[in-house]
Nucleic acid binder design. Structure first.
Lengths: 219, 219
DNA sequence: TAGGCTTTGTCAGTTTTCTGTCAGACTAAC
DNA sequence: GTTAGTCTGACAGAAAACTGACAAAGCCTA
C-alpha cells in the first residue's frame, strides 16, 4: 500500500514512517500542505494520513481543497484535538477516519487496513444480491451456488442491474451501458435480453416496474 | 439513507432509532444477530450500525460471517470496550469504523455521513410522514415497514403530496405535476388516482378538504 | 471453406397493466 | 332537500412489456 504521510512533527513523522515501512507499506513523508499537494500531483497513493495542524495550512483546509479538486483517496486525520465538534468538522470536511493523539500504533494500522480494504473490495467488487452472485473479473454468475452460463450482453446487463443495488434501472440506462449508444438498437433489444435472462435465472429474480425499469430482487 | 441498526439495549436502541429518523434516515432496528441476518436477506441497506455484544452472538462474529457471504455494506461498530486490541479485532473483522460508548450523537452522525459518502451513496431524500415512507431514489413506498407497490403515476402523485409536508394540495397542482399540462385530462383523473391510492394505502392516509385539495395524514 | 452452433437484434402477435372517462352513488354544507 | 363537489366500480383504449420465431453475424471445428 502506498501512503502519503503529511505530518510536520519530526519525531512522530519519523516513527510513523519507520512503522509503516516496517508494516510493508510504501510511505512518502511530507511536512507541509504545499509538498503534499505536489506529491499528489506527481504520484498515486492508496491512502493519506493527514495531521490537523500543518505549518503552512490547516490540514482540514488542505483536505477540503483536495476533495474539491476531485481527490477521492481515503484520508485518515490525526489530531491532538478531542473536541467532538472538531472531529465532526474533520469528518464532514472529507476525512474518512479520525484518530486523536496520542494513539496506539496498532490501532492506527488497523484503521489503515480497514480503509485500504475498502478500496480492494471495490476493485474486486464481487456483486452479491441474495443468492445471486456475479464476479465481473471472472465473468461468472451463480445462483444459490449453482453456476449459470450467460452470454456477453446478458452478463453486462445483469451486472449493471446488480451494481445499482436494488434500485430500478431504466431501459435507456441499460441501453447506454450495453451498447454505448454506438449501436442504435430498439428498446425491444433490452426487453429480449431481459426475457432471456429470466429464462436462465428463473422468474422472480428480475422485477419490472412499468414505465420505470427493472431491478434485481433478493431471492 | 437506509440504515440497519443492530442493538439489543432497548434504551440506546430506541434513542438511536429516534435520532436517525429525525436525521432523515430510514432505520430498521433489530435486536439480535439472527434478525439482522434476516433483514439483510430481505432488504437493501446503505449502512449497518452494529453493537459488539448481542444476545445470541458476538457482533464481531456476525460481521465476519456477513463479510464472508459477500456483504460489502459499510459497518460502524458500537462498543463499551476501549481496549485497543478489541478495536483492532473489530476493524480487522470487517468493520469500517468504530465508536466506543458513551459517544456523542453528533459524532456518530458525522461518522455515518463519512461512511455513507465513501460509498457514494446519494443522501437519498426520503420522505417520511408518520409510518409512511417514500424513497424517490429507489422508487419504493412503505407503510409501517410494509412495502407497497405503486404504479408510476400513483407514485408521482403520492410523492408530490408528501413533499408538500402536511399542506393541502389542490387537484390542479397535482394535475400540473403529474401530467405537465401536456395531457389535458379531466379533474376526475386525479380523483381516480387518489381513489386507487387509498385502496392501496388504506383509508385515513389521504384526507380531503372540499374545494381545497388533498393531504397526507400522519398515521 | 463449409457446416454447425451460438448470439443477438428485430418483428409481430400476445399478454399484461395502466389509466382516463363515465355514470351513478355518496356527502357535506347551506 | 338541494346542490356542488367528491368517490368509486366498470370499462375500454392505449401503452408497455413479454416472448416465440427468424435471420444475420460471429465463431469454432473439421
Amino acid at each position: 500500500m502506498k501512503i502519503l504521510l503529511v505530518e510536520d512533527d519530526p519525531q512522530l513523522g519519523a516513527s510513523l514512517e519507520r512503522a509503516l515501512h516496517h508494516d510493508g507499506s510504501v510511505c512518502e513523508w511530507v511536512k507541509t500542505a504545499e509538498d503534499a499537494e505536489l506529491a499528489l500531483d506527481v504520484s498515486f497513493f492508496d491512502l493519506i494520513i493527514l495531521d490537523w495542524m500543518l505549518p503552512d495550512q490547516q490540514g482540514i483546509y488542505f483536505l477540503k481543497e483536495a476533495r474539491k479538486r476531485g481527490v477521492t483517496i481515503p484520508v485518515l486525520m490525526l489530531t491532538a484535538r478531542t473536541a467532538t465538534s472538531e472531529k465532526i468538522e474533520g469528518l464532514d470536511g472529507g476525512a474518512d477516519d479520525y484518530l486523536t493523539k496520542p494513539f496506539d500504533l496498532d490501532e492506527l494500522f488497523a484503521r489503515l487496513r480497514s480503509l485500504g480494504r475498502r478500496r480492494e473490495v471495490k476493485a474486486s467488487s464481487e456483486l452479491v444480491i441474495g443468492g445471486l452472485r456475479l464476479c465481473p473479473d471472472r465473468h461468472e454468475v451463480s445462483l444459490n451456488e449453482e453456476e449459470i452460463q450467460l452470454s456477453k450482453t446478458e452478463f453486462l446487463i445483469l451486472q449493471k442491474m446488480m451494481e445499482s443495488q436494488g434500485r430500478y434501472i431504466s431501459k435507456s440506462q441499460l441501453e447506454e451501458y450495453a451498447y454505448n449508444w454506438d449501436n442504435c438498437v430498439t428498446p425491444n433489444a433490452i426487453e429480449a435480453q431481459i426475457s432471456r435472462l429470466r429464462k436462465r435465472l428463473g422468474s422472480g429474480v428480475i422485477t419490472t416496474l412499468r414505465g420505470v425499469g427493472y431491478k434485481v430482487e433478493k431471492v
